[in-house]
Design a binder for these strands. Structure first.
Ligand code: FES
Ligand code: FES
Lengths: 144, 144
DNA sequence: ACTAAATAGGATATAATTGTCCGATTTAGG
DNA sequence: CCTAAATCGGACAATTATATCCTATTTAGT
């Protein structure tokens, strides 16, 4: 569904959001440990999220990553997915035709767009705040 | 969503079904041309579908691929996807945790399983017959 | 028997994704 | 000023997915 990079990206952002809500800035090392991801690869993804203004990064001692608190409830999963995987899950055809196009649809088009739209809506309506609070309350997990 | 192999597999099977309904057996070359896929790679996928008893293959001159006519309306997309991509789309966690598990869910689990079940139901309820007749009536396409 | 056309299958090549390593730079604190 | 801790960014390595090539085998027709 999503690339590994995107999965790590969402998990990273969620963990950063959780800590930013509590006023803590977190380091790459801590993030990778808490979401159980390869450190150096996670670094690349965080760079990308930083360039896309999804997370803020601070270099040097006591540096790390955080997210502006006022932004956390406005930041939607769709923005993270878009920054990492682009829009291919929205525009791609389920059967791999050049692009999804209702004027010359593939045999699953009709049924596929419904599911894809549900996915899009889900991503557009799920905020990092919602993700982070579920974690905080011990209802959900970022590793296992 | 699906692997390239799976996309080619579905498109191949649909094209074979269409022709089997009309009593024609089709060759690899023709299939690859009509679904616009790489010939040799498509051959591998057809081998796999053949081993899984989804399509029948006939060697030698005038050989090719077909699907038993009485089977076409019972063959569901889910069987093809399962033969090629396995069950990872059903059991995999949306955020990449070891496996999807409601007892220790990731932050998107609740919303994700709904979408995934819709996808599963769609695949389980869509027959090759349905796919092929849409094609036959010129409503849908396998290449563009 | 021979030939041409077709699938089967193993070996190999290419591309994309995932993952690692290391030096450069930045920064807080002693 | 120095050091330690941290991100940045480029180069590289490993793995997986995609794609190609070639030979063997099968089969209908002549
Ligand atoms: S054309 Fe295939 S999903 Fe829209
Ligand atoms: S645990 Fe992540 S989708 Fe179910």
């Amino acid at each position: 569904m999503f690339s590994k990079a995107c999965e790590y990206g969402i998990r990273s952002a969620t963990y950063i959001a959780l800590n930013s809500l509590e006023g803590r800035r977190v380091s790459l090392k801590e993030i990778a440990k808490e979401i159980d991801s390869p450190v150096a690869f996670t670094a690349k993804i965080l760079q990308l999220l930083s360039k896309n203004n999804i997370v803020d990064s601070v270099k040097g001692a006591y540096g790390g990553f955080d997210i502006n608190r006022t932004k956390i409830d406005k930041l939607m999963l769709s923005e993270i997915v878009n920054a990492i995987d682009g829009d291919k899950i929205y525009v791609g055809c389920g059967l791999g035709l050049k692009e999804c196009n209702a004027d010359k649809p593939c045999p699953v088009h009709e049924k596929f767009v419904g599911i894809r739209n549900d996915l899009r809506k889900m991503l557009e309506n799920t905020s990092l705040y919602e993700m982070a609070t579920g974690l905080e309350m011990g209802l959900t997990y970022l590793k296992r």
